[in-house]
């Protein structure tokens, strides 16, 4: 259901969409049932001249069963929902598959800094590539990200991955994703972080291995200051485009 509104491009996104469908079916049945009974009663038991209301206390066992049985069914449904939710959570947040590549995502007021490990594939070495508001990843690769914040709480949210994680200053939080489709999508900040919260928009570019390699080669030729200047320029251009559009 969600996929009709927004693409899913991560390995676990489909599971979250399925969980959505599962919950929708379960609560939808209950919801329709409850509303139907409510409206049926309202229509059926409208006041009629000379008809007195019934005297039902609800304390007798037989009457009470009308409440008790649906309520046992709800417990059953709850167990199904909990099981589904816990399994998805465990996969997305708790059990990290081995990383093919580790990146660092740092939030600050009001932009995202993405640190790519560069050609050697290791963070905190001289060939790291730092970009602002633009994340480059390879398709079909297990990424671990280390999430940090320089000032206030931000939240790294990639809707197409169905992924979200707050960045807490002082903490390093690790998460993962594995993109399944190429393309360019939004990265949002999902936790209010001051007046610039609304412009803390970044893009994630999911590339084929070849395109990613080409980007890496191009970046390796430049030094860090050039790169930062480039990406900042792009950013300003993007914003201007948007403002005009």
């Amino acid at each position: 259901m969600i996929e009709s509104l927004l693409d899913n491009v991560s390995t676990y996104g489909g599971k979250i969409d399925n969980l959505f469908t599962l919950i929708t079916i379960i609560v939808g049945v209950w919801f329709i049932l409850a509303e139907a009974v409510l409206f049926y009663f309202i229509i059926r038991y409208r006041r009629k001249e000379g008809v007195k209301a019934q005297y039902v206390t609800g304390e007798k066992k037989k009457e009470h069963n009308w409440i008790a049985y649906p309520h046992y069914l709800i417990i059953l449904c709850d167990i199904v929902i909990i099981a589904g939710a816990v399994m998805v959570w465990y996969e997305v947040k708790q059990k990290l598959p081995p990383a093919d590549e580790i990146i660092r995502v740092t939030g600050r007021q009001w932009s995202w800094i993405f640190t790519h490990p560069g050609p050697d594939g290791v963070l905190d070495t001289a060939d790291d590539i730092e970009t602002v508001d633009k994340l480059h990843v390879k398709v079909d690769t297990n990424y671990h990200f280390q999430l940090e914040s320089k000032d206030v709480i931000h939240s790294f949210s990639v809707p197409v991955f169905r992924l979200k994680q707050d960045a807490i200053p002082g903490r390093v939080i690790t998460g993962w994703f594995n993109p399944t489709k190429t393309g360019e999508y939004d990265v949002q900040c999902a936790e209010i972080c001051g007046i610039g919260h609304g412009i803390m928009a970044a893009r994630i570019s999911i590339e084929t291995p070849e395109a990613h390699q080409a980007w890496l080669d191009e970046q390796s030729k430049m030094d860090q200051t050039q790169r930062m200047a480039m990406s900042a320029e792009n950013q300003i251009e993007n914003r201007e485009d948007n403002d005009n559009g």
Partner: peptide, 21 residues
């Protein structure tokens, strides 16, 4: 999947992240 080093430690090991499980 998270670490919260005290400020003194944080400066010492900047790459203190990674998974702990």
């Amino acid at each position: 999947n998270w670490v919260n080093p005290s400020p003194e430690q944080a400066h010492a090991e900047t790459d203190g992240g990674g998974s702990h499980h």
